[in-house]
Amino acid sequence: MPPLDRRTLLLAGLASALGAGGARAAFPERPIQLVVPFAPAGGTDIAARRLGETLAGKLGGSVIIDNRPGANGIVAGQVVVKALADGHTLLIATAASFAAAPALGQKLPYDVAYDFAPVAMLGLFPLVLNASPTLPVRTLSEFIDYAGQRPGQLNFASAGIGGTNHLVFEMIMQATGIRLAHVPYRGAGLAAADLISGQVQVMIDSLAASLGNLQGGKLKALGVTTAERQPQLPDLPTLREQGVDVVYPGWASIVAPAGIPAETMRTLNGAINEAMADTTLVARYRELVIEPVAWSAEETGAFMARDRAALSELVAKTGIKLTE
């Protein structure tokens, strides 16, 4: 057999490479693990499950929900940051763990800005400023006037120091100049119960958790923190509409370990955003009082970075400490 010349060898190598590329399995090659930093049955967990079902259909594979609660998301974060950066292990990142925690100086075993790659959004979670039925105000402006005349005499509740509902009310106080005493609870449910009974006067809470009490007349809503009014309470103005320049929805995003291939990132982002337009998913999100958002990976990352910066600035101004 005659010896192979250089040109023949090059052509053979090219054919081999093309054959290997054609044989390579398309993403995903195995089930996608979506790690949720909460126990099952909460709003974020249910949203992740609904997205997982729809996303599996878009990608032609399966999505497994892996609940890893604990340590303000650190347990889940460690699972994902140590995983292969191939797109098969993803994390639900929240405002609490990826914005508030670093802003408050919480010691984390990873850097949320560099060790993870934002992929897409899970959704926005509308918040509402609730007032106790015992408080003699009907509107946000009446509340601001009432509180302004009684500096330090009224209380606002939260689910704990440094939580989203604590920080958002601090934003409102910064924007309006009113001063209320902070009463942190061990969870939003306990705080809401004391708000209904009049032990505390106001509280920022999720619209999803508040809706039943608002519709039942057990609480009074003074405004939503989103940029637009919410369909569940179309007559309730936003804070900004009422002259208080605060826009802050709760949020959750989807991130991967840093180093995920660009093509895999594009595939995941495209499939997630297709899922966000799925009519069944949109209807399920509406039931959960979650706003579906279809953003690019770059838009998602910029949003998360802006939130970290805004909360860091708030903490610097107010001196909030986790141990206060």
Results as ranks from 00 to 15, higher is better:
216 G>E: 11
185 Y>R: 05
181 A>P: 03
202 V>E: 09
206 S>I: 08
228 E>R: 09
183 V>G: 00
189 G>C: 01
200 V>A: 00
186 R>E: 03
203 M>W: 12
222 L>W: 02
195 L>R: 09
184 P>D: 03
187 G>R: 05
212 G>T: 15
214 L>W: 06
181 A>G: 00
199 Q>G: 14
219 L>D: 07
203 M>A: 14
190 L>W: 11
186 R>I: 04
182 H>E: 05
229 R>G: 14
200 V>D: 02
233 L>G: 03
205 D>C: 02
190 L>H: 11
200 V>G: 01
224 V>I: 14
225 T>V: 13
211 L>F: 15
231 P>L: 12
215 Q>Y: 09
208 A>Y: 14
219 L>V: 06
183 V>H: 00
230 Q>T: 13
204 I>L: 03
221 A>Y: 01
181 A>N: 08
216 G>N: 12
213 N>D: 15
232 Q>H: 03
203 M>N: 12
229 R>Q: 14
210 S>T: 01
231 P>H: 11
183 V>F: 00
196 I>E: 15
207 L>Y: 12
218 K>L: 08
193 A>N: 12
207 L>K: 13
228 E>M: 06
203 M>V: 10
188 A>C: 00
221 A>V: 06
186 R>G: 01
217 G>T: 02
229 R>M: 10
228 E>F: 07
188 A>F: 00
203 M>Q: 15
209 A>I: 06
183 V>W: 00
204 I>T: 14
188 A>M: 07
